[in-house]
């Protein structure tokens, strides 16, 4: 057929390879399909939660403004206002951040920069391990130790309160904040430190003026992750929040954040009541999106 000698028989190999190319094509499609499943899941979640949650406002004539700003939540009387829960969630999250972030950050700096290697080698993995233990256990600890402590020392009728929630959430976010921030600080190149030290800046000054700013984006991630844990936490919070439906005016008030409202009532809710719980979910969801966005903005501004 051809005057040039062909060592490998074109026909035969072509056939074998044809199967390979087909397999190649099929497997590529299968992989793509698997990758698309996460998109599908996200769409399904958003779709279902938003569909269910928006139904009362679209089809049943409820006002979304009243839902957001109403201060009464009495499903049996058809009253659905979630302002107390929104306020509770915001206070609890901000409070936890105020306590948890500085302590976590300072601990991370200590482990990465100050602690002797042998000490850090024990503490870091231990803290990492604690990030993995079920958050419910933090709630159990909170109910058993923190709540009675507050009750006795602050003379409260009920120790379950905003401050109890804040303390539990702050403790809970510590391992996450410490682990992520420590990794970020360790990743700062040695030359940065050496450069600063060579200019006569003290070791502590170097840490705060050079190393920490250089690790800023990683530290920001640590804060975002810690915050995500705090605002999304449900079961541990139920145990220490007290779950009263009032707008908290003091740290000792009993509160009911958005997440716990859903978990507490989902079991028996139906009809509009259930849909309102989904609407609560939408608000929680939007909250997290907004907070992430704001924090991203802050961190990018700080960079300029």
């Amino acid at each position: 057929m051809s005057s040039i000698p062909i060592k490998k028989d074109a026909g035969e190999i072509g056939k074998a390879n044809k199967r390979k190319y087909l397999l190649e094509k099929v497997s590529g499609r299968v992989f793509l399909f698997c990758a698309l499943l996460s998109v599908v899941s996200l769409l399904l979640i958003i779709g279902f939660v938003f569909y269910k949650g928006s139904h009362p406002f679209i089809a049943e004539g409820y006002s979304f403004i009243d839902f957001l700003l109403g201060s009464d939540w009495v499903p049996s009387e058809d009253k659905f206002g979630i302002l107390p829960m929104i306020v509770a969630s915001i206070y609890a999250t901000i409070g936890a951040l105020i306590i948890g972030v500085p302590i976590g950050l300072f601990t991370a700096i200590f482990l990465a920069e100050i602690a002797p290697r042998s000490v850090a080698k024990i503490i870091s993995p231990a803290v990492q391990l604690l990030a993995g233990i079920p958050s419910v256990l933090y709630g159990v600890f909170g109910l058993a130790i923190i709540v009675p402590f507050l009750q006795n020392n602050l003379g409260l009728i009920k120790g379950q309160s905003l401050i109890a929630v804040i303390i539990v959430l702050a403790i809970m976010m510590l391992p996450t904040v410490v682990t992520v921030a420590e990794t970020a600080i360790r990743a700062v190149p040695k030359t940065y430190r050496e450069g600063s030290l060579a200019l006569g800046v003290s070791p502590i000054g170097t840490i705060f003026k050079v190393v920490v700013p250089a690790a800023k984006s990683g530290i920001m991630t640590a804060i975002v992750l810690g915050m995500g844990r705090a605002i999304g936490e449900t079961m541990a919070v139920i145990l220490v929040a007290g779950n009263s439906l009032i707008i908290p005016t003091s740290l000792t008030d009993s509160i009911r954040p958005l997440t716990t409202n859903i978990a507490l009532e989902m079991g028996y809710a139906f009809g509009t009541h259930q849909e309102m719980l989904f609407a609560t979910g939408i608000v929680l969801f939007s909250f997290i999106l907004i907070l992430n966005f704001v924090l991203a903005r802050i961190s990018s501004k700080g960079g300029n």
Binding site: L42, I45, V49, T234, M266, F278
Partner: peptide, 25 residues
């Protein structure tokens, strides 16, 4: 980019929302 965005977003959703979704779906 879309797939990565979806994957990252899934990481950020609190588990109670997953619970809501699971309960209805």
């Amino acid at each position: 980019n879309t797939i990565r965005f979806a994957t990252e977003s899934l990481t950020g959703i609190p588990s109670i929302i997953y619970g809501l979704f699971g309960a209805v779906f």
